[in-house]
Amino acid sequence: MATPLAPDTPLSAPLDVGFDYTRSLGPVLGRFMTALRERRIEGVRGSDGRVHVPPVEFDPVTSEALSEPVGVADEGTVVSWSWMPDPIAGQPLQHPFGWALVRLDGADTALLHAVDAGSPDRMRTGMRVRARWVDEPVGSIRDIACFEPAGPGAEPRGPAAPPPAGTEPVTMLTTPVHLAYRHSASVQESRYLRALAEGRFIGQRCPACGKVYVPPRGACPADGVPTEEEVELPDRGIVTTFCIVNVPFLGQRITPPYVAAYVLLDGADIAFLHLVLGCAADEVRMGMRVEAAWKPRERWTTSLENVDHFRPTGEPDAPFESYREHL
């Protein structure tokens, strides 16, 4: 998972953030999407009489709520354009295409969409374009696959496809948003993670307040200064406080129920969250002594997940006063 790099290079790894958002549309946008499903384009009349396509729910000048639908053509004129030589993920076409603001006949504002023109030489402001509809419209701006050049010399359009079967108005839109990031650990955290890959815990001491942080951070949060002095820590300590997670949720990686506990390693001044196993959940106590149960060495990486969980050592519990200031 992690990129192998020189020893002092901070670690980094991919972080993918994705969700299919479910958007409710409300009356104005719902009507627009419903019309798109029928391969029709409908705008809305603004306070000043202008016809907005795509429709807007609230007038841009008066902020008045708008509601009067106005049908417009699926052909129109390009009012501005650019050329995309190298389309990126999710865009309407995956070969080079033009982006255009298209003012449809009957509309006063312009709709942004792709134009499948083949070459930038065929694009110009004022050119006529017409919608190319997808075969199975669902009620989305993507029901228009793209626009294509129209007017004299354009290829004739094929016969109109039959309107789709859907009869219920479109009220919702599903929008997948999937983004790829690279997550980096700080220099200090990277040293700690590399130590974990060797089965060791290291923290760092703040030069200002003397507190030992594990994992070490980019800066001591209390003083705003980088921490440098390294401190080797044992893989045992106490549970300061905890909860028992019984609730399942999307993206969860540990099957409930499990004990999520703050573990304060001996010699550290800050606790971190980890899993406690090795006894019944209702036997976990504040102040309980625990030690790391490491995964088999061959599965170690630069991650706190090398510690499968913490388990009770059987030593007497720490007195409350000894960890009171860590709550």
Binding site: A13, L15, F19, R23, L193, F249, R253, I254
Partner: peptide, 18 residues
């Protein structure tokens, strides 16, 4: 529109998904 539990529990790399 989404799921707050998901958004608040995205596990960054290197950390323990508790």
């Amino acid at each position: 529109e989404s799921n707050a539990m998901w958004a608040l529990s995205i596990v960054p790399p290197f950390s323990m998904p508790v």
